[in-house]
């Protein structure tokens, strides 16, 4: 089982982090990664609006529970890879590329989100919405993913 790569997209659709974890992957130029992130952001926005059913039953106003916002693309599977998209409540998106048979991808993404909130969001030198350049985040991420790939 191999985790291939991680991409983090900010809420405006900008690429803020990209990292490969496996050897021998096809590389894109920096520009292409930015385009990929922007494109995915747009497609994701469209998919949150898509619904094959008419929304007849509007939620009753008496209820205190707010319905979950539409999540858009969550998983994209192909013959060669599986793309898991995790969108946080603030709109940051974590895209994890893995092998199609990789188990527990949601747990892995959850753990990566945890590392992000610890080592990026608690870092006083990180500016919000800007590219992530945090040494300790890189280190912890590799420390976490490497054992998964060698299993």
């Amino acid at each position: 089982m191999v985790v291939f790569a991680l991409i983090i997209i900010n809420k405006a659709g900008g690429l803020i982090y990209q990292r490969d974890f496996a050897e021998g992957l096809n590389k894109l130029s920096i520009n292409d990664y930015l385009v990929l992130a922007g494109t995915f952001h747009g497609v994701h926005a469209i998919t949150t609006r898509l619904n094959p059913l008419h929304q007849h039953n509007l939620p009753p106003s008496t209820s205190d529970v707010r319905p979950d916002p539409p999540s858009g693309i969550e998983v994209l599977e192909t013959e060669n890879f599986r793309l898991q998209c995790f969108s946080t409540l603030t709109g940051t998106k974590f895209l994890l590329f893995t092998e199609p048979q990789q188990p527990n991808v949601d747990k892995i993404v959850g753990r990566i989100y945890e590392l992000y909130s610890d080592y990026v969001m608690k870092n006083p030198f990180y500016q919000l919405e800007m590219p992530v350049r945090c040494e300790s985040f890189d280190r912890k991420l590799v420390q976490y993913v490497r054992p998964l790939n060698s299993r």
Binding site: Y119, K122, N123, P124, F125, R133, E135, S136, F137
Partner: peptide, 14 residues
């Protein structure tokens, strides 16, 4: 623990 000092300030230790 959670602080990564940017490269241009590598002399700094919080």
């Amino acid at each position: 623990q959670y602080i990564s000092v940017p490269k241009e300030m590598n002399q700094l230790n919080c």
